[in-house]
Structure formats: C-alpha cells, structure tokens
Design a protein around this nucleic acid. Sequence first.
DNA 1: TCTGTCTTTGCAACCGTGTGCAAAGGTTCC
DNA 2: GGAACCTTTGCACACGGTTGCAAAGACAGA
Lengths: 351, 351
Amino acid sequence: MPSPRKFVSAREVAERAGVSRSAVSRAFTPGASVSEDTRRRVLEAANALGYHVNHLARGLSLKESGIVCLVGSELGTPYRANLVKAMTQAAQDAGKVAMVINTDRSDASVGAALRQALHYRADASIILSGLPDKSITRLCLENGQRIVLINRDDDQEGPLRINLKDGEAARHTLTAFLRAGCRRLAFANSEAGTPSLMARERGFLAAAGAIGLTVAVERFGPSVYDSGRELARRLLTARERPDAVFCATDLIACGFLDAARHEFGLAVPEDLCVTGFDDIEQAGWSSYGLTTFAQPVSDIAREAFAWLMLAPEEATRRPAAVELEARMVWRRTVRGYAQDLSPDLRSAAGA
Amino acid sequence: MPSPRKFVSAREVAERAGVSRSAVSRAFTPGASVSEDTRRRVLEAANALGYHVNHLARGLSLKESGIVCLVGSELGTPYRANLVKAMTQAAQDAGKVAMVINTDRSDASVGAALRQALHYRADASIILSGLPDKSITRLCLENGQRIVLINRDDDQEGPLRINLKDGEAARHTLTAFLRAGCRRLAFANSEAGTPSLMARERGFLAAAGAIGLTVAVERFGPSVYDSGRELARRLLTARERPDAVFCATDLIACGFLDAARHEFGLAVPEDLCVTGFDDIEQAGWSSYGLTTFAQPVSDIAREAFAWLMLAPEEATRRPAAVELEARMVWRRTVRGYAQDLSPDLRSAAGA
DNA sequence: TCTGTCTTTGCAACCGTGTGCAAAGGTTCC
DNA sequence: GGAACCTTTGCACACGGTTGCAAAGACAGA
C-alpha cells in the first residue's frame, strides 16, 4: 500500500505559528512549560493545517506507545465479542487504544500475536484465549510489557491473572438442582479443555461427590451451539436419563435446550433442569430463559486496566491474581426458584 | 503506565553479530542486499537477544504503519462481531494489524476515532457504523489515509463504499411472501435510520407498491431483540393483522418471532411468515429456523482489503463502490419453499 | 541601577529504524 | 595485470517527536 503520504509535521506548524518546534511539542504536552499566548497560537496553526501529533514518533521517544494488544480467538462468539467490546471501551477510557489480534488460524499463533505486540511496542497484552509459552511470556515481561490473562488459570509469575470463581458457581448450581429435586446429574462439556471449562466440571463433580452423588460427564467438540445439541443426544439417550444438566457454556446450553425440547420432546424445567454459564444475550431470549451465571465482563475489563495503569513498582507489589464472582441469573430452566427462595433474594436476582 | 522499558535495539544486535546497524536492518528487510552469511549471523544474534523490529520506528521512516483502523459501535452484536472477526483476520492475512475503536459512547466519536487513526498514522480506516463529517474524511484523504465505508451508502468521493443489494433482497422477500400466499404485508424496522435499514424498507415498499400492495411499517427503538418484541406487539395487535413481516435485522426478527409465538400463540409459518436480514448464527438455531439473507461478511472483508492493497493510482482509477449480493437463506419461517421450488435450487440453498 | 528569581524559549541530542551513496572487496574477462 | 562489473558493507541523514539544559527576558526588591 505505497501512498504519497503527506502528513503535516510539527515543523510546519512551528513555522506558521512563528515559534520553535519544541514549542509545538510543548503546546501538546499537558503540564509543559508554555505561555498561554504561545499555546493559543500553536493550536490555531495546528488546527488550520490539520496537524495531528504522530503517536508513532511520540511512542518512540516516550517509550510508551499507548497501544494495548487484545489477543484471542472466536471473536464472533457472543461472550468473546462482549469481552472485546468491554476491553476496547476500557482501553479508550484509560487513554489507550486496542489493537486486536485474531488467533483463530493456528494454535501457535498466541506466540505470534505476542511477537506482534512486541513489534508495536504495546504497553500491555491481554490474552483472552490460548496460553502463551513461558518463554515468550518471559520475553514480553523482560521488555517491560505487561500481560493480563483472562480465565487462563495459569501459575506463571508476572502476568495479572483474572479468574472467575468457577467452583463456587458449580456449587450453587448443585444446590439449585438439589432444591429442584434432581438427583440424576450430568455435566455437558466441550472438548476445548479450557481452564475455566475444566474448573467448572471439576467443581461440579467435587461438590456432587461430597454428598455421594455421581455425575454423568460427556464431552464433545468445540464450545458451540451444535456441540450442545450433540451432547443432548448423547446424554438424553443414556439408560439412566439425567434430570439436571450443567452445561459448561451458554452456547452449549442453548443447543442442549433446543435438542431436548425439539428432538426429545422434553419439557424444561419440568422434565429436565438445565443451567449454563456466561449469561450471553440469547440466554435471556424467551425461547430459552436460561438460568445461568453472568460473567462480570465490565468488572473484568475494569480490573485489567486498573492494574495496567498502576506504576510498575506498585503493580509488582500487588497480588497478581484477582478472583471475580459469577453472579447467578435465575430464569426458567431450573424448577423451584419462585417457591423456595425468599422474596428479597428473588428481587435481588431480578426475577 | 511508566515502565522501565528495556527493548533490545538493532544496535545491540549489530554489536553482538559484529556487523553494522544497517546490516541488521537489511537482514530484516526482504529483498535487501545482504550476504547469506551476514543474514544468518544477524538472525542468530537477534534471536539470542530477543530482538523485535520496532514497527513504530519502521513506520516512521517508511511512512506506512501497517495499522488499519476499524471503527464501529455495538461491537457485541452478532453481526458486528462477525464483521470485526473477519476484518481482523483479513488484516492479518494482508500483513497488517487491526486497531479497533469503539464508538459506542458518543455520536460525534466517529470523528474522534478518525482523529485517533490519524494520530497513529493508520494506513486506512474502515468504518462499520456512523458516518464521519465530510471535513474529517477529507482530512484523512489528504493525509493519504484510505477509507472504506461498509453499508454506509454515502456519496462522498474518495472512500471505497461497500454496500449490499438491499433492494434486491427486498424484492426476493416479497416474491417469497407472495408465493406463500401472503397479502397483508408489514415491515418491522428500528429507529436507527441506518442507510442499509432504510434501503431495505424503501425497497420492500417500492416492490409491494409496484403490484398495488400496501405495507404496514412500524419503527421502534434500536436494532435489538427487545425492539423486535415490541414491534410484534404493535404490529400483531393492529386491526388488520399482517400475515407476513419482513424484519430489518435478524435480531429484530428473533424478538418478533418469540413474541409472536409465546405472547400471541401464533404458529410460524402457518399463521405468519417472517424474514430477517444478516443471517446471524442464532437465525439457524432450531428455536428460530429463520429465513433470512446472509451478509457476505468474508467477501466484504476481502473486497475491502483487496482495494486497500492496491497501489494508490490504481485505487483511484477503480470504481469506488462495490455492491455485493445478500444470498437468501431458506429455513422455516416462510411457507411453501419445499413445495414450490425446483429440487436443484433447494439443494443449492442447503435446505 | 543592580541583583536575584521565575517563566518562557530555543538549541541540540536522542528514540530506533530505513536507505542513498560511495567505498571496499571479489569475480570475470580480456 | 588491469579494466569492468557486481555484490556487500558502512556512513550519515531522514523520519517526527520529547526533553535537559542553558540562555534570554520579565519582574520585584533593595
């Protein structure tokens, strides 16, 4: 894309305003030493010429580019899309700008993405999916680039790790199922093996095991709608059909619900209780009314940028892990909510 | 975010490899004049030191940053999220990187976003929503920055305009409704007033008008699920209840369908035919099975980047507008498809 | 008027890269 | 051996900012 680029530079502004190039720079630097008169003249000239400070050059001398890299895959998915949206917004609020790198193509590309972040001297990288090699992480850290891991559940030192209390959510789900009178439990998972997915599975199994119940676990495909349908086919044709299923994500839950209702003719929640995770928009649509757990997407973004804006010595002093709560959102795929819960709790959940 | 940034520079690599700094630069520039031996030594040293070419500095001297700005709002929406995904992917395939700017906050912020693009000397900006002032567009163009407008239907000279044949889709919808035996037509739109939304509405009204049919038009709220529900309440309580509704987007259609079925107890497509637009993933979910039009998202991205990679003189010679077809996706919310269409067409549509 | 202090300004060096130009070195051919 | 040519290399400047430092100017006080 070779272009006859003709950007106006500080020198031209300086000439027009009849000042030195440093004066122009200072006029655009908050807190710099410039007289009010000079600043006005400079801004006037800049405006007339259509001058925009070159952030590439500024980043070069400041050693701070203002760029934050967002790396992740499946960005078209409702949950991820919301995360990207929240992150770009938070970045802008913090005076940064988000550079997003899509890692759908290959599996090694989390590393490639981080290399790209290094090329652009990104101030930080936020990783939404995949897990980078220790070596590349270390490289970024050594270069003064900060890293945030979202739901990655890694034990590397250095990056900030933001995780959800998946185990707690699993226990709440179990409680809800038990209260609904369910005993034949199942867990519908994808084969993605993502840390958070596995944490939910482990948490659910552990909680059930603690009171002597077993859980039928099925895993299939990626974390998408169609996998949910297939999981329903597998779980609902089992000899002992489950009466309560915890789906690892809402997308899976939606597929599961559709198959259960339309292919198996089951009534939810009468014949079968179902829960999901993420609280994607579709979970609230009246064809689903899915009881699920809300990912506190804006809290995640806020936590991430709060840490990123910290001074370096401050950042290393703070604990490098944050655990956020996933709020249970009661809707209509689990029995017994309206009858059993106290009214105040009911309104708090926004029934 | 002040950091003790310590990036390794070409000078350090040069010292370690025992060559000049220029040699390092050339080793990383494809097609530059370096001996194989020198290149190897440089790459070795670079690898050992963890060197990454500084794209900020490179952009400074090349006058080409490799950055493409993606500006848009409602990035969490299924359609937009898919577009962002396709665009980031296409950018990477073209050797560029996408910087996304979220314009949800204010309406003037399309201009602010483009200013940001100027600050970072982006090679191009792709605008997914909103419409920039003529003045700011001109500013970008003058600075050699290319602009792509997606579904914006503007007549400004300079930017590439990629649009869908909304009118054609509207005519197809009408044909389908007529073939299904419907005569009481309606159009459910949001109040967003987006060019493509209005084009669909106008196209549908014109096509119906041409054969002497009138269309009940209702507009409400933003282009979201809940608006669809409200639109259903309004249209379905009319004295003359419509038997066919063209919804401006799939999100609206999903809300409409849910309200029609669950609140009004209508059977679709027996009592009512419904179509949407976008072919978001949920349209294919079995609770909806929505007949709709697929936005050729990857084609849009491909067209955009094909044009962006053109040499400047080439780009200005080409027509600055592209019209893409929206393929009709037949599912189950319109009657008569299976009976009336020829088998080959049926299989082509993937029934 | 002279001195001391404070604000404002310009000079010049630096950030990390790409590249035109000239020089050096090597090879081929006569 | 020398001329002609090609490949490879380094120097030095440009890209567009920021900023330490010193100088200049303004101003108050003695």
